[in-house]
Structure formats: C-alpha cells, structure tokens
Simulated assay, not measured.
Amino acid sequence: MYLEEVPRVTRIDKATFLEEYFRRQRPVVIEKAIEDWPAYTRWNLDYIKAVAGDKEVPLYDDRPVDHRDGFNEPHAKMRMAEYIDLLKKEPTRYRIFLWNILKEVPQLQEDFEYPDFGLRLMKSLPMLFFGGRDSYTFMHYDIDLANIFHFHFEGEKQCILFSQEENRFLYKVPHSLITHESIDFSAPDFEKWPALRNVRGYKTSLKHGEVLYMPEGYWHYMRYISPGFSMSLRAMARNPRRLSKALYNIFIMRHYDNLMRRIRGQRWIDWKNEQAVTRTHKRLDSER
C-alpha cells in the first residue's frame, strides 16, 4: 500500500482549485482558508457544549455491522454536554457523524460561510462529525459520491484516502459503502490482506482550521489523534458515471441491503464479508 502526502497549499483561488484539483480529481489541504470565519476562533469543544449542550446526539462506535442495525442507525444516544465531557475525560470509541447543524443548532450557521471554490455547495447539508482520542471510522465512501470539503476544528485528525479506481484491491464489501471491517488501515496486515500491497492512495493529518478537499466518491478513513470535530460541506458529483452510481446507491442499493438484512439476518452480513475477501483475492490471482 503506497500512500503519498496530500498536497498542501496555504491559500488557493477558485481558478487554480478548479484546474489543479477539481478537474484532475486530486485531493488538497488548504491550510488558511477560513481564518476570517468567526468559527475559526470560536469553535472548540467548550463552545459547542455551551450552545448545544442540551441536544440529544446520536453516537456510533467501531463495532462490526450487525443485521439488526438499520442503515446508519446509531448505537447509543447522549446529551451533547455529557458527550463532550466524556471526550475530554478519557478515550472513547463513540463518535457523532452526519449531525446537521442547520436543523439542530441554527445559530451555528452565523459562524461560517459557504466558500466559493467554483462548485455549487449544498447549503442545506452542513454536517458535523465528532470523535474522541483513537476513535475512527471504517474505510468508506459517501453514498452520494459528492465532492467534500472537510473543515477540521480542535485537535488533530489522521486521514487516509483512495479513489474509486482502487476498488478492486480494497476488499470492498458488496452492496455497501465500506471495506472489510477487520482491516486496520492505519497499520494493515499485508499477510492477511495481500491485495492492499497493490493500492495507491493519500494520507494527511488535519489540524484546527485546515480544510481537506476529497474528490468525488473518494474512500476515506478518519482517526482522531486527539478529541475534536469537523464540518463537511458538499457539492454534487459532476461525473455522469459517479452521479449514476450515487443515484443507484440512494434509491436501490441501500433499500436492497436493508431488505436482505431482514430476510437473511446475520447470514447476509457474513456472506458479504466473505465475498469481499473472495472477490478481491480472485482479482489478485488473475493479475499475478
């Protein structure tokens, strides 16, 4: 597995971003894009606790997918104030993801703007993500294969990225958006997962105020080096092939997967995990 560093720029104008990164579908970290936002100086865990402490939030951890779980169904719930206290007290696997701040805490929108990178951002979908030290997401891609701008606040976050062109050796689980959950992408076991030797991707670490652009459909693994949170803004996929795949995922794939979980139960989950390995190793053998 070869990981090169995500390119970094201090600032970037719209024309350069579109030409160098969007059209080439390459990731980039912009280090000083939001220093004029109120969020740059305000947003930390204490501030979120003050403005949203009474809100009940959905929590997710890194347990394996179970057939009894619905699509993106949370594993627990907690008041935001209690959750932030937990983050600051000790390591926890609990994360918040896809928390819509327009719906939950509208006043937070006063703290940021929708930057003009030349893409039409979906202004109804600013999402927050929180995690404690050493918590992580499975390697996955977003259901809509959107262009994502990921703004990080407080602490440090490790990111590993792959394009959709790397699918054949990533142990992708069929009828899902994840790779095999047993893989630790921060330190992969190449004896157990030999196909990963053939993939190429990117890595970076994000600190407060930095912005990561993830191109359409990019796989991403996120690990919180220290407690913190991020906000994602997104723009629809432009590539017709990726846009059609997004529509398939939203309107067919996820409903089919939920139906099969109800019909076959855990056997469906186990079969998918087995197929992720079988299909990937078959491709690996065919190219040797």
Rank of each mutant, 00 (worst) to 15 (best):
A33P: 03
L145I: 10
Y171C: 01
L128Q: 05
N239I: 08
R242L: 14
H255D: 12
T10Q: 12
K272V: 04
N249K: 02
N100H: 05
P194W: 02
S232G: 13
E19P: 00
Y136F: 14
L86F: 07
E31W: 05
L247A: 13
Y171Q: 00
E31N: 12
D61R: 08
E113Y: 08
Y171P: 00
F17Q: 04
R133D: 09
P115Y: 01
D142Q: 11
I96K: 06
E35V: 11
L125K: 13
D142M: 09
V6D: 03
R168G: 11
I101P: 01
T137G: 09
D116G: 04
V211C: 15
D285P: 00
F97L: 15
A276Y: 04
K207R: 14
M78Q: 15
S230H: 09
S244F: 15
W99Y: 07
H67G: 08
E73C: 01
E156C: 01
K49M: 10
R288C: 12
A187I: 03
P7Y: 03
K88A: 12
P194Q: 04
V28Y: 00
I269L: 01
L98T: 10
Q109Y: 10
H208L: 00
L196R: 07
L206S: 03
L243P: 06
E90C: 09
Y21M: 02
E113W: 10
P215T: 03
P215K: 02
A15F: 10
S286Y: 08
Y202M: 04
T204I: 06
H150C: 07
C159P: 03
T280F: 00
Y136C: 05
G118H: 02
G155E: 10
N273C: 09
I269R: 04
E90K: 14
M139E: 10
P240H: 09
L145P: 02
Q275R: 13
S176H: 10
A187V: 07
L119R: 04
T179C: 14
L45I: 04
P64Y: 10
E4Q: 14
K157T: 02
R42I: 09
H152W: 02
N198Q: 14
A187D: 14
E73R: 06
T137E: 11
K245G: 01
Q158L: 15
P7E: 04
H220A: 03
A15N: 13
L233R: 01
F251T: 11
N100V: 06
D134K: 14
D142R: 11
G155V: 07
D184P: 00
R168W: 11
V29Y: 03
M253W: 02
M214A: 14
T92R: 09
K282W: 13
R26Y: 07
S244A: 15
S232W: 06
A237H: 05
P58T: 05
L170F: 04
